[in-house]
Amino acid sequence: MKNDGITTGFPDEQIYEVFARKQRADRFEHVGTITAPNRKLARVYAWQTYDEAKWFEMTVAPRTAFSAVNLTQAPFTLGGAPPMGQGSVADNDSTPGYGTPAES
């Protein structure tokens, strides 16, 4: 089941991205999202929601932990990606990046 990041309206909740792999030799695949108020419940919800396979390993991370690399939109945005180079790269990290005034 894909949640696709629907929030529940509770101010203490945030979206978590869920990754899993079936065997140690596999790469992680993005299996979906859940919404949770804390890491403990995020782990429970992820494990109990995405139970379609006998996973060897599953991990969750808040969506805010991910930074856009090449696209102009926030990571995991639905609805198609705009071409590269249009607009500024979405960034949820306040530390200066390469080429920003702080580094020049």
């Binding site: 529940t8 909740e13 859940i34 919404t35 429970v44 919800y45």
Partner: peptide, 9 residues
């Protein structure tokens, strides 16, 4: 339950 996730749990 208070959220869909809690219901699934």
């Amino acid at each position: 339950a208070p959220s869909v996730e809690a219901g699934i749990a």
